[in-house]
Each structure stands twice: as C-alpha cells, then as structure tokens.
C-alpha cells in the first residue's frame, strides 16, 4: 500500500501540474473573460487547453485508482503536492517570485503530506475498518 500511494500521488502530481500550467497559458491567451462563444472559441482555439485536458484526464484515472483505498479527506489534502511543483515551475516559466514565504509554505505542505503518509502507515497497521465499511 505504501508503494501504491507513493507512485499514485507522484503520478497525480505530474498530471495536475501539466493541467495547471496549461490552464494558465490557456487563460492568458483567451483574455478578456466573457460569457460568450467568442471566449470559448479563444480558449479552444489555442493548443494550451488540450494540454489541460490531457492533464485532467490523466489525473482523473489516477485519482479514481487512488480513491479505491484512500480516504477522501487526507487524500484530497495530499493531492496538493501539485502546489509545490506548480510553485517551482511557475517561477521558472512565468517569472513568479520564489519568496521566502512561498518556500516556507511549500515546506509546510511537504511536512503535512509526510504526516498524512505516516498516519496511513499506522492506519494500515490497524486495518482501519471504518474507511471501507462506511462507504456503503
């Protein structure tokens, strides 16, 4: 189960990161935001929205595989590993500043996910019947 979660969440991070970076490019390309066909055409006329779709679909299948075993609350929190990868990539691609505060935030996210991982390790030891039994 440890390997299942490790591989699953890292794969999820890659797909989520692809989606978010593509979203940003797609949104920038389609300005200004309008509730009309012209905006949708601008969004779907640029290649970036398709990168976002690939990221979304990949993340979807990975996420549904993870949720077979993972409790939704901790799993959703752990899926925010993407914030760390997006932070680093957006500093590189968009010139967003890597401030000390952001690095502290990224470290807290990683620390939190380590806590969640240790919690799952302990739960696996005690079998934790509540998670699976309660889904019926």
């Amino acid at each position: 189960m440890r390997r299942f979660y490790l591989v699953g969440f890292l794969l999820l991070m890659c797909f989520d990161t692809l989606a978010q970076i593509s979203f940003k490019y797609a949104g920038n390309h389609a300005l200004p935001v309008e509730a009309n066909l012209a905006w949708l055409l601008r969004v779907f006329g640029a290649p970036w929205v398709y990168g976002a779709i690939i990221g979304y679909v990949g993340a979807f299948f990975t996420w549904m595989a993870l949720l077979k075993h993972a409790p939704i609350g901790p799993a959703f929190a752990a899926s925010h590993l993407e914030v760390v990868s997006v932070l680093i990539l957006s500093a590189w691609l968009f010139g967003d500043a890597l401030t000390p505060a952001r690095l502290v935030g990224a470290a807290l996210i990683v620390a939190g996910i380590v806590c969640l991982g240790v919690a799952e390790d302990r739960a696996a030891g005690s079998a934790e019947p509540a998670d699976s039994a309660a889904t019926h």
């Binding site: 609350g73 505060a101 935030g105 990224a106 470290a107 939190g112 806590c115 998670d131 039994a133 309660a134």
Partner: peptide, 24 residues
Amino acid sequence: FGEKLTRLRVVGMFLVALGVAIVG
C-alpha cells in the same frame, strides 16, 4: 464516510492547508 480524524491526520491536513494559504 466516517473517516477517522486522528490527530496525525488533522495535523497533516492543517499543515497542508496552511502551507497552501501561505504559498498563495
């Protein structure tokens, strides 16, 4: 879903939420 809110899970989730907020 009756997911247990163990202390370690709560700490982990709040660290992640705090970290996300600080990054923002």
